[in-house]
Simulated assay, not measured.
Amino acid sequence: MSRLEIYTDGACQGNPGPGGWGWAAAPEGEPNGSGGEAASTNQRMEIYAVIDALRTYSTVADDHGAPVPIEIVSDSTYVVKCFNDKWWVKWERNGWKNSKKQPVANDDLWKPLIELVQAGDVTFRWVKGHSGDRMNDLVDALAVAAVPRRT
């Protein structure tokens, strides 16, 4: 296995509101995972999808015992830019304050995600959402289906 491609997505009914997340391994969408929270935001669900996917694959190694490279594919610029533009480096350096000197939103999820990314060989790629990408559509459907229904 040269590289594992995992698609991730989050969804929310209202923002904030009940939220769901989903991930799936390309090219067939199996394995996959999903879950939800009664009270969340879309951004939290986007982050949590990546956390769960990386936790699931954190022990996958190649024939030499090295971590298998993973590419996370997401339609969330929030997630992708955090790593590709190294937002998290600035957040850590600034004591988890953003450029406006405000506390970084979702730091309770960013911190464990950053640890997972640093522990492996993880890259990020953005894909346009709702554009007919089969795998992106699949993880969107998983996330939407995982949103807890209000009773």
Score class of each variant (00 low, 15 high):
Gly14Pro: 00
Glu30Thr: 14
Val68Pro: 08
Ala66Gln: 08
Met45Ser: 05
Thr41Met: 03
Ile70Asp: 14
Gly36Arg: 00
Pro16Gly: 06
Asp85Cys: 10
Gly95Trp: 04
Gln13Gly: 00
Trp21Glu: 12
Gly14Asn: 03
Ala146Cys: 01
Cys82Leu: 09
Asp140His: 01
Ser74Tyr: 05
Asp63Thr: 04
Gly132Phe: 05
Thr77Lys: 10
Ser58His: 08
Ala24Thr: 15
Ile51Ser: 11
Ala24Gln: 14
Gly36Trp: 00
Lys100Cys: 09
Ser58Tyr: 09
Pro16Ser: 02
Cys82Ile: 08
Asp63Asn: 02
Asp75Gly: 09
Ser58Thr: 10
Pro31Tyr: 14
Ala26Trp: 15
Trp96Asp: 09
Tyr57Ala: 13
Trp21Arg: 05
Leu142Asn: 03
Pro103Thr: 13
Ile51Pro: 06
Pro103His: 09
Val147Ala: 02
Ser76Glu: 05
Trp96Met: 05
Pro103Phe: 13
Ile70Phe: 14
Tyr57Ser: 11
Arg134Ala: 15
Leu142Lys: 01
Ala11Val: 01
Arg134His: 12
Trp126Ser: 07
Lys81Phe: 14
Asn136Thr: 11
Gly14Asp: 06
Val68Cys: 09
Thr41Gln: 01
Asp121Ala: 06
Arg125Met: 12
Pro69Asn: 10
Asn94Val: 01
Asp62Ile: 04
Val79Lys: 11
Gln13Met: 03
Arg93Val: 02
Ala61Met: 10
Leu142Ile: 12
Asp62Met: 08
Gly10Met: 02
Asp133Pro: 03
Trp96Pro: 03
Ser58Leu: 09
Gln118Arg: 06
Trp23Met: 11
Lys97Gln: 10
His130Ile: 04
Gly19Ala: 07
Glu37Cys: 02
Ala146Leu: 02
Leu142Pro: 01
Asn98Pro: 05
Leu113Arg: 05
Val50Ile: 13
Phe124Ala: 07
Gln102Arg: 00
Pro148Leu: 00
Val79Arg: 08
Ser99Asp: 14
Ala141Leu: 04
Cys82Gln: 09
Ala143Glu: 11
Trp88Asn: 10
Thr59Val: 12
Ile70Thr: 14
Lys111Gln: 13
Tyr48Gln: 13
Lys97Gly: 07
His130Gly: 05
Asp108Met: 01
Leu142Tyr: 09
Pro112Ile: 11
Leu113Cys: 12
Ala26Met: 14
Lys111Tyr: 04
Asp107Phe: 10
Asp133Arg: 00
Tyr78Phe: 12
Ile72Asp: 13
Val79Glu: 15
Arg134Asn: 14
Ile114Thr: 15
Asp140Gly: 03
Asp133Met: 02
Met135Cys: 11
Trp126His: 13
Pro27Tyr: 15
Gly19Tyr: 00
Thr77Gln: 12
Trp21Cys: 07
Pro18Thr: 00
Ala39Pro: 00
Ala145Asn: 00
Trp87Val: 07
Trp126Asp: 07
His64Thr: 11
Lys97Phe: 04
Gln118Asp: 13
Glu115Ala: 07
Asn94Tyr: 08
Asp108His: 01
Pro31Trp: 12
Ala105Lys: 13
Val104Leu: 08
Gly33Leu: 11
Pro27Arg: 03
Gly129Phe: 07
